[in-house]
């Protein structure tokens, strides 16, 4: 394994019957990188992400995540990654502390570790007065920030973020991204999907999927240069506008 690669993907393919959801995609993600994974609805983003998280077996191709093979070492992968999505993040009917303890417990961390880290997380988020409140009583932005902290609680090598900022207000969205930057600085590799095109600019590199293929992959400035665009929004529209799957169901 290449020490500097957090994720390597080579000709990874997933077919559902006749339908090729992900068609021989190849890319590498460097350790400590913020990697943006963009695509229209139905482009195959979710399917690709599931394979990398060890939730779905590829039809063909190879991929390693944190040095582990997605076919045979999914248990190792799961131990070394964090995952957070907009849809499922925290248990609404548990308190903040209970949520943290629960997730920390899953990864079998020592009590000492959990205790220290919990107070650290609480302090970072300024949640001292909210630790014993039910998650459902908190605003969405807070929930998302807690969910992110929980997803990197066990200090994974890579964290997968699936539309983490959907519906969050502009200020909290930026606070969320500062957290992402901090995590990246501490060496965690970030793999993130988003529908906010300004957030694509925050990534070190961006990969844009169209119809199961990777249409483009580069740093945001390079992409804008190549497609003669002033923003990532424009780049995305130029690339994805002619997607067949957006038209054909």
């Amino acid at each position: 394994m290449n020490e500097n690669k957090a994720i390597t993907v080579d000709k990874l393919t997933k077919k559902f019957g006749d339908f090729t959801a992900v068609d021989a995609i190849s890319f590498d993600v460097n350790a400590g990188e913020i990697f943006g994974f963009l695509g229209a609805n139905g482009a195959g983003k979710t399917t690709a992400m599931r394979m990398l998280c060890g939730l779905s077996l590829p039809t063909s191709g190879t991929a390693t995540v944190a040095g582990f093979d997605v076919y045979h070492q999914t248990e190792n992968i799961k131990k070394n990654i964090g995952y957070m999505s907009q849809k499922f993040s925290l248990y609404e009917d548990l308190t903040v502390k209970e949520n943290i303890n629960f997730y920390a417990g899953i990864y079998g961390k020592s009590n000492q570790f959990i205790k220290e880290k919990t107070s650290q997380v609480i302090a970072n988020l300024h949640l001292e007065n909210e630790v014993d409140k039910l998650v459902k009583s908190l605003p969405l932005g807070w929930k998302q920030k807690i969910a992110f902290s929980v997803s990197i609680f066990h200090e994974p090598e890579i964290v997968f973020l699936d539309e983490p900022t959907g519906g969050v207000d502009p200020i909290t969205r930026r606070e969320f991204w500062s957290m992402i930057y901090k995590a990246a600085e501490s060496g965690i590799t970030i793999f993130v999907t988003t529908h906010y095109m300004d957030e694509a600019e925050y990534c070190n590199r961006v990969c844009i999927m169209v119809d199961g293929h990777i249409k483009a992959m580069d740093t945001p400035p390079q992409l804008k240069k190549r497609y003669n665009a002033t923003s990532m929004d424009e780049v995305f529209l130029k690339l994805a506008r002619n997607a067949e799957r957006a038209q054909a169901p």
């Binding site: 695509g39 229209a40 609805n41 482009a43 539309e163 959907g166 519906g167 529908h195 095109m197 929004d233 995305f236 529209l237 994805a240 506008r241 997607a243 957006a246």
Partner: peptide, 10 residues
């Protein structure tokens, strides 16, 4: 348009 990609949103 929530959760819909930028192309469909346009």
């Amino acid at each position: 348009t929530t959760g819909v990609d930028a192309v469909s949103r346009n």
